[in-house]
Design a protein around this nucleic acid. Structure first.
Lengths: 335, 335
DNA sequence: CTGTTAGCGCCTTCAA
DNA sequence: TTGAAGGCGCTAACAG
């Protein structure tokens, strides 16, 4: 509190050298004798001096910061991605600036309202499902843009193969002998529509391959949607024997309906989710893992690569993995 | 990509005014005629010009950024707190810098390894349970420090009354007629020990008030710990009829053990958590809400108040609230 | 109401 | 290997 923190000048004075020498030492560039380097270092330590990114950034044009844009911070998924990004950036000595834009979204020109330009070296979006217009707006910021959760030709992105993941999940149910396999998907969710579409397509393809009719119910995204959709399915004359949901959240809603209706899982209905939500294990829910933390790590690495101008590949596809638990089993025809 | 982004000079040239005029307009300070203001504004828009916080910060000594330190980003709780902080800071035109220090923790001097100094106007810690030594190290950064999740005399902090919350929860179980009420707590968790202690104390106090013996099992934090602890309790000759856990995560573990052991909830055992985890509702778990998002909001408001030097009160206690669901019921003696 | 001037702390020439 | 000078983009005094 009080006076300004020590500046490079203070360190220089204490070490008895010039500003440039201190600067060289702090940046770790060669061209300083070991003796002097040591002297400057201890002077800096004594004052607990830290280089101001503000000032150095003014000169170099780099801020040492990466902006991360997420729709919401609350859901488990985003926390995981951020965790991966954060750790990776720190090792590259970059800070993470987080912008939650869920509420802003929809306002025209929300990209402009963020103080991104000149305030970060790169922008990472997390499952924002950006339109190409929005992408271009972000390009306007003038720094590299890395997308996660969507695949856009010509742009750096990290994504999973939603289609394949959903197909894999569907096949798992089919292999268990189920033939009446329903799908609960979401609609109207503002930032997931692309991946929603792909997962639905994956389900459809797997069903078609097996020569079975598709049976999908679309509902509002989230737990409540799952609850309602499952209610609809149960009201049918011949309910399905297996249900795949677009993501675990919806599976949880579906699970709740099943529990309240006294329908045993997986006794009467096998239930499957997608995401490997942190509590899927609590419910023993069979699901598809998409390693959100690894997505964050990959996005950060891609970003660092681009900043160093040695970006090897700009499209990174992350693997999905079937997580088998107790909520699915071989088909048992109802009495 | 390419040339430097437009600077204030470019805007000034385009609008045909001087630098200071542009500066005044951008900062929204009075003393500019509406006509000129309008002209400058549209010039800025045309160039999609954004003020560089770097440069202005150099002059004002303010960075326009607040650093938030969290142990981990993954758990639901932290995401919620961050969500509250983020929205509140944005309205004050401050950016949020997030540092995840879980892995660093334990290394001596981890506070020094963060580039906080000169890079943020204030520091908010989230459930870090800092030692006074660590607090002092952070003071060294020279910016205001706001703590959440712990109460330290003389420091700005936002916290809940863990003792009271746990006592309230215990009394809820007692009021249902339970007399064999056990408590599952965590031990060894690096960043929750303070609140752990308080919750345990709250349980003990409520039991003592009712003239009942306490019955606590401490286990590792997290779901696994809850699983094991509940296993221990079930192995007893006369298991408890009600169990309070230190937090929902442990309750989920306990729930899993109960489900696998075929013990009906709340038929045989009433189960209660603490936190109101986002999936507590899926499990119909009775719990205590501590509104993490509101904690974040309060912390950010407190921070803004301190930065504006009009901080009214520096200790903010957040209320806790009993959330009644289906996992607790009146005692029914076992057959 | 508007423009001019002098730094903020640092990096990058260039010269010694 | 070291130092001196200039300027990065902006704000805060001033002067007009």
């Amino acid at each position: 509190m009080s006076n300004r923190p020590p500046s490079m000048r203070d360190v220089a004075r204490l070490a008895g050298v010039s500003l440039s020498t201190v600067s060289r030492v702090m940046r770790g560039v060669p061209g300083v004798s070991p003796v002097v380097r040591e002297r400057v270092q201890s002077a800096a330590d004594e004052l607990s001096y830290v280089v101001s990114r503000n000032a150095s950034g003014l000169v170099t044009g780099r801020t040492g910061r990466v902006a991360v844009i997420v729709p919401f911070l609350q859901p488990w998924f985003f926390g995981s991605v951020l965790a991966g990004i954060s750790d990776t950036l720190r090792h590259a000595d970059l800070d993470m600036l987080v912008h939650q834009v869920g509420e802003l979204r929809g306002q025209r020109g929300w990209t402009r309202s963020l103080p991104l330009r000149r305030n970060s070296d790169a922008v990472i979006t997390v499952s924002m499902d950006l339109s190409s217009e929005e992408c271009e707006r972000l390009d306007d910021v003038g720094v590299p843009l890395v997308l996660t959760g969507q695949k856009v030709p010509g742009r750096a992105c990290v994504f999973i193969d939603d289609r394949q993941g959903a197909a894999k999940a569907t096949r798992h149910l089919l292999n268990l002998g189920h033939t009446r396999v329903a799908y609960i998907g979401s609609t109207g969710g503002p930032w997931l529509s692309l991946s929603s579409r792909h997962r639905l397509e994956g389900y459809r393809a797997a069903m078609a391959d097996a020569g079975l009719p598709e049976w999908s119910v679309l509902s509002s995204p989230g737990r409540r949607g799952g609850e309602l959709a499952m209610g609809e399915l149960l009201a049918e004359h011949h309910p399905p024997t297996a249900v795949l949901t677009e993501f675990d959240d919806m599976a949880m809603g579906a699970y709740r309906t099943l529990r309240r209706s006294g329908v045993p899982v997986p006794g009467a209905i096998s239930l499957m989710g997608f995401d490997n939500h942190e509590v899927a294990s609590v419910l023993d829910l069979t699901t598809v893992d998409q390693a959100p933390r690894a997505i964050g790590t990959a996005a950060a690495e891609l970003t660092i690569g681009i900043l160093n101008e040695d970006a090897p590949h700009r499209h990174v596809e992350m693997p999905t993995q079937l997580i088998l638990r107790q909520s699915t089993s071989t088909v048992r025809e109802r009495p």
